[in-house]
Structures are given as C-alpha cells and as structure tokens.
Deep mutational scan, measured.
Amino acid sequence: KRPMNAFIVWSRDQRRKMALENPRMRNSEISKQLGYQWKMLTEAEKWPFFQEAQKLQAMHREKYPNYK
C-alpha cells in the first residue's frame, strides 16, 4: 500500500466532517467538494499536509525499502 499524499492526509478528516454535516450527500459528491476545497487552499494552508505526507513517505521507505 502506498503512503498517503498531502491531499489524502488533509481529506481524511475533512471527509468525516463533511459526511457528518451532510449525511445524505453521496461519497462521489463529497469527493468533488473536497477536491474543490483543496484547490481553494493557499500553499501556506496546504504546507502542513505536505510535511505530514513527506514524513509518512519516509516511514514507508524505511519500513518497505524494496517497494517499487
């Protein structure tokens, strides 16, 4: 399994919040909304999620050194 990228790190919590706030919203619509919201974030707002993704990638490399 691949390490999470910055968008996935960010969207994990956002998806839960959105699903709780909009229980009738379909998963496909939630995904569209999340994509739009991510695009609207500034680079500074995205930065912590890129840092977290880099940490996860480093841990993944250490744990699975022969992963493609």
Rank of each mutant, 00 (worst) to 15 (best):
W47K: 14
P65L: 11
N5Q: 01
A53E: 06
D13H: 04
L34N: 05
H60G: 12
R2W: 09
P23M: 03
E29M: 06
E29N: 04
Y64Q: 14
N5S: 14
Y64K: 11
Q37H: 08
R26C: 05
Y36M: 04
A53S: 05
L56S: 05
K17Y: 03
K32C: 01
A44L: 11
M18F: 06
Q54L: 05
L56I: 05
L56A: 08
E45V: 01
F7S: 04
F50C: 05
A53G: 07
Y64F: 11
T42P: 11
E45Q: 08
E52P: 01
E45F: 07
E45C: 01
D13L: 13
I30T: 08
K17F: 00
I8H: 09
L34C: 01
S28E: 14
N22C: 05
E29G: 01
S11I: 09
K63D: 14
F7Y: 10
P23D: 02
I30R: 00
P48K: 07
F50V: 15
Q37D: 09
W10A: 04
R15K: 11
K68N: 09
L56N: 00
F50N: 10
Q33F: 01
R24C: 15
Y67I: 13
A44M: 03
F7C: 04
Y64A: 15
K32N: 04
H60E: 14
S11A: 11
K46F: 01
E45L: 03
E62C: 10
P65V: 12
P3F: 00
S31M: 13
A53F: 06
G35A: 13
V9A: 03
P65H: 12
R15V: 02
R24Q: 13
S31A: 07
M59S: 10
L41R: 00
Y67T: 15
E21M: 07
N66K: 15
R24A: 10
M25S: 07
P3V: 08
K32P: 07
K32W: 00
M59V: 13
R26M: 14
Q54Y: 09
Q37L: 06
Q33W: 08
M4S: 05
Q33T: 11
R26N: 10
E29R: 02
L41T: 01
W38L: 01
E45S: 01
A58H: 15
P3L: 02
N66F: 03
A44V: 06
V9R: 01
Y64L: 13
R61C: 03
T42A: 02
K68V: 12
Q54C: 09
K17A: 00
F49C: 11
E21V: 09
M18V: 07
P3R: 09
I8M: 14
Q14H: 11
E29H: 08
K46N: 01
R2E: 08
K17N: 11
W38I: 01
A44S: 10
Y64S: 14
L41K: 03
F50G: 07
Q51K: 09
E29C: 03
R24G: 15
Q54S: 05
W10F: 10
T42C: 02
S28P: 14
H60C: 08
W47D: 11
R24K: 15
S31E: 15
H60K: 13
K17W: 01
R26V: 03
R61T: 12
S11D: 06
P48D: 07
M25F: 05
K68S: 02
N22M: 10
F50K: 13
P23E: 03
I30P: 00
F7T: 00
N22S: 03
Q51N: 09
R2N: 11
P65R: 08
N5R: 03
E62W: 06
W38A: 07
E21D: 11
K17S: 02
M59F: 04
A19Y: 06
Q51C: 06
N27F: 11
L56F: 04
P65N: 14
E52S: 03
P23Q: 01
L34E: 00
Y36S: 10
N5K: 04
W10G: 02
L56R: 06
P23T: 07
W10P: 08
T42R: 05
I8D: 15
A19D: 03
M4D: 13
R61N: 07
G35N: 08
L20F: 07
S31P: 00
R2H: 11
S11Q: 10
W47T: 12
N22A: 00
Y36I: 07
Y67K: 13
G35S: 14
E29Q: 05
K32Q: 07
Q33P: 05
Q14P: 06
A58I: 06
K32F: 04
Q57M: 06
M18K: 03
F49A: 02
A53P: 03
R61F: 14
N5M: 02
E43I: 06
R15F: 08
W10C: 01
Q54I: 05
Q57H: 05
G35Y: 08
Q57N: 03
R61W: 07
K55R: 13
W47N: 08
N22R: 02
Q33L: 11
S11G: 02
E43S: 07
A19F: 06
W38G: 00
I8R: 03
Q37V: 06
Y67A: 14
T42G: 01
I30D: 01
I8S: 14
S11K: 01
Q57L: 05
M59D: 11
N22I: 03
K32G: 02
A6Q: 01
L34Y: 03
H60T: 08
R15D: 11
L56K: 08
R2S: 10
A44I: 05
S11C: 11
E29D: 15
Y36V: 14
W10R: 02
E45M: 01
L34M: 01
Q14C: 12
E29Y: 00
Q33C: 01
Y67V: 15
Q14E: 13
W10D: 08
E29W: 14
E52N: 06
L34W: 00
A58V: 09
S11Y: 03
S11L: 02
Y36E: 15
K46T: 04
F49V: 04
E45A: 02
Y64T: 11
S28N: 07
R61S: 12
S11N: 02
W47R: 15
K17C: 07
E45I: 08
P48T: 00
A6L: 03
M4Q: 08
Q33N: 01
E29V: 02
L56P: 07
W10M: 04
F50I: 07
R2M: 09
F49S: 03
K46W: 02
K1S: 07
K1G: 13
E45D: 10
W47S: 09
E21L: 09
M4E: 11
V9Y: 05
K1L: 03
R26A: 15
E45K: 03
D13M: 08
P48L: 08
F49L: 04
P65M: 14
A58Y: 08
I30N: 06
Y67F: 07
N5G: 10
M25C: 03
A19C: 06
K46D: 00
R61Y: 13
A58P: 05
E29K: 02
Q33A: 11
A19H: 08
A58W: 09
E29T: 00
Q37P: 01
R24L: 09
P23W: 05
Q14F: 04
V9D: 08
Y64R: 12
R26S: 15
N27L: 08
K63P: 13
E52D: 03
T42N: 10
P48M: 13
Q51F: 05
Y67H: 15
M25V: 05
M4T: 15
P48I: 05
N27C: 06
W10I: 02
Y67R: 14
K46M: 01
M59L: 10
A6W: 00
Y64C: 11
F7W: 01
E52T: 04
M18Y: 09
P23F: 05
F50P: 03
M59T: 12
W38K: 05
H60A: 10
N5D: 15
D13T: 08
P3G: 09
N66Q: 13
Q33V: 12
K63E: 14
L41S: 07
S28K: 02
Q37A: 07
Q37G: 01
E62D: 10
R2Y: 08
K63I: 12
W38M: 03
S28H: 06
L56Q: 08
P3S: 13
A44Q: 10
S11W: 03
E45T: 01
A58F: 06
V9I: 15
A58M: 10
K46Q: 06
V9F: 12
W47F: 12
Q51W: 01
E62F: 05
E21K: 06
G35Q: 14
P65D: 15
M18P: 05
R61A: 11
H60L: 05
M4C: 00
N5V: 03
